[in-house]
Design a protein around this nucleic acid. Structure first.
Lengths: 217, 217
DNA sequence: TGCACTATTAACCATTTGGTTAAACAATGC
DNA sequence: GCATTGTTTAACCAAATGGTTAATAGTGCA
């Protein structure tokens, strides 16, 4: 029994496939269950079963619940944050950036609707730990270019005065919150799944329009 | 041993105080721990300790973890939703309503910063159950008056065309999300507690300005 | 074929955890 | 005072849970 599953030079087809297959099956299962139930609510047994394996094998691949959780969480944070950089750090004009960002973020979250709630909950449970990793891993997302752009547009009187942080918060809030708060919102608004999905889809265009209206001079 | 702790006619000072005291201490402790750790993460032992009592006594007052949780959760939902009615159902003009609502909601959440995350998480864990109670208890919040007002202002060309649901989502998102996502936002924005609190306070004025700008013709 | 190594499992273990019991301790009514 | 009723506790219990062990099966290679 040992955990070093490095792929050595040997061509080693069937075994390798099986092994990677198992590891991937575990990760997929863990992702689903951790996202749905959170660290505290997830059960190793359940993850094993969902992966079609035995609890012992789960521990064979990932020593502990915490280790497994960290794999899932770090993957999740990476996905969530890696969307910020490329668009907000790019060379587009402010308005285009806003449009692209909202479109991209909502598309992504639509594909991974449980992700934001999962991350936000776990980060709240354990701020220090998870936040510090957040910085180490991908490096803190760099919003400075976006911020400068905002300030510059304010100076040029193209948009009204607004703190860049507030603008960013508004944008992110409107993109992410409807997913985190979906069950509550759907109840309060009294709309069915189909209608709510339509509302979410509409937001790709609605939010940028809303934001730009709000800040344009 | 029995759970009927109704206050009978008898004047019954010391005993009554003690009793209510204990019950309240339990609720306060449970509130704190459930909000911080969630249903799955909370431990009865810990709640008992935080209330300065014994686990058995905890079960004496509230039969089970689930029962205790329900007390806390129903209180939480009530607090969260009861803010919607009075303002959005009132007679103010649309813009005033928006101003009042944002001001009131942010003030409230500032006093109870863990509440939204707690509710949203638990409701996500268990949508059917918690949503149906949500409706029964206080009755579904009535947004129809607010929605009619929006439609009416659109017809009168006072504001641009926007689905009332989208407007409501935007408003609620901007109010609540910064609290739910605080640890993440603070890391990403790289601001200390004081600065973040200031940003939050500013939002009481910033959000209404932002929204009204966005929709005003 | 047999050796070395990995993958997988069933059975097991220690701890945690929600919940219970029986007894001690007030406080009150009579 | 003493029986009654409500409050509080220490000790206990069974189930759940994260984790381990030892044995088994599978695979490449000499």
């Amino acid at each position: 029994m040992q955990l070093n599953k490095k792929v050595n030079g040997t061509s080693w087809t069937s075994s390798r496939e099986k092994e990677e297959g198992t590891e991937q099956k575990i990760i997929a299962a863990a992702r689903g269950i951790f996202q749905r139930k959170g660290m505290a609510g997830a059960r190793m047994e359940e993850i094993a079963k969902a992966a079609g394996i035995n609890k012992a094998l789960l521990h064979y691949y990932f020593r502990s619940k915490e280790k497994l959780f960290e794999v899932i969480m770090s993957e999740a944070k990476m996905q969530m944050l890696s969307r910020l950089h490329p668009i907000l750090g790019g060379d587009d004009s402010l308005f285009i950036k806003i449009e692209k960002f909202v479109e991209s973020y909502i598309s992504f979250v639509t594909e991974n609707p449980l992700l934001p709630g999962f991350i936000l909950h776990e980060i709240t449970m354990n701020p220090e730990k998870i936040s510090e990793q957040l910085i180490k891993k991908g490096g803190r997302p760099n919003l400075s270019k976006f911020f400068q752009q905002v300030e510059s547009e304010i100076k040029k009187k193209n948009i009204i005065a607004i703190q860049p942080e507030q603008l960013f918060m508004n944008m992110l809030s409107m993109c992410v919150f409807p997913f985190v708060g979906r069950p509550m919102l759907q109840t309060v608004l009294n709309v069915n799944d189909k209608k709510f999905n339509q509302l979410l889809a509409d937001r790709k265009k609605e939010i940028p329009k809303f934001i730009i209206n709000a800040i344009k001079r």
